[in-house]
C-alpha cells in the first residue's frame, strides 16, 4: 500500500480510485477530518486557529498570505508523507477544487520536488479522453508497490 497525494485534494473520485487500488489517498478530506474531529477546539468551520498559519511557515515564508500558510499547514505534512502523487490539471469544479491558486502552485511545486512517482494528467473533456484518463490512473496505481487489482 502506498500513500498517494491527490490533487485536487477534495476530489472524491480520485480518493475513491486510489482506495480501490489498495492505496491510501492523502487529500483534504483526511486533513480537514483530523482538524474537525480534534476535541477542545472551537474555531468553526474548519477548526483552523491562528496557530495553523504559523505551522504553515515550514512551507511558505512569513510574507506569504495567511490563507496560503493555513492551507499549507494541512497539505504540507501530507506532501512530506506522500509516496506517490496524482495531479489533475484544469479540473472541473465538480471534480474537486482547491480554493487558492497560489497554494495550488506551491503544492504542485513541492510535490514535484519530492523524488516520488507523480502522474500528471489534464482533466478529460470528452468520453474518449475520460476512458484514457481512468486507464492512465489505473496503470499508475497498479504499478505502485503494494497495490491491489481493482
Amino acid at each position: 500500500m502506498a500513500k498517494v497525494f491527490i490533487y485536487p485534494g477534495t476530489s472524491l473520485i480520485l480518493s475513491d480510485l486510489v482506495s480501490r487500488f489498495g492505496h491510501r489517498p492523502l487529500g483534504s478530506a483526511l486533513s480537514v477530518r483530523e482538524k474537525v474531529q480534534t476535541a477542545g477546539l472551537d474555531s468553526p468551520p474548519l477548526q483552523i486557529t491562528p496557530e495553523d498559519p504559523k505551522k504553515g511557515l515550514r512551507f511558505a515564508a512569513v510574507e506569504v498570505p495567511s490563507g496560503v500558510r493555513g492551507r499549507m499547514s494541512l497539505h504540507g505534512p501530507q506532501i512530506e508523507e506522500a509516496e506517490a502523487g496524482i495531479i489533475i490539471l484544469d479540473a472541473d469544479l465538480a471534480f474537486g477544487c482547491m480554493g487558492c491558486a497560489r497554494t495550488n502552485e506551491l503544492v504542485r511545486f513541492l510535490l514535484h520536488q519530492r523524488d516520488i512517482p507523480i502522474l500528471e494528467l489534464t482533466y478529460p473533456r470528452s468520453d474518449e479522453e475520460g476512458i484514457r484518463f481512468v486507464a492512465a490512473i489505473r496503470d499508475f496505481l497498479s504499478a505502485l508497490a503494494g497495490g491491489a487489482a481493482a
Binding site: 468553526p44 491562528p50 496557530e51 498559519p53 495567511s66 493555513g70 480554493g99
Partner: peptide, 14 residues
Amino acid sequence: ACGAEYSGVMPEIY
C-alpha cells in the same frame, strides 16, 4: 471572503 477559514480568523469575524 477568501482565505478567512484557513487563517483562523472566522471566530473573530463571528
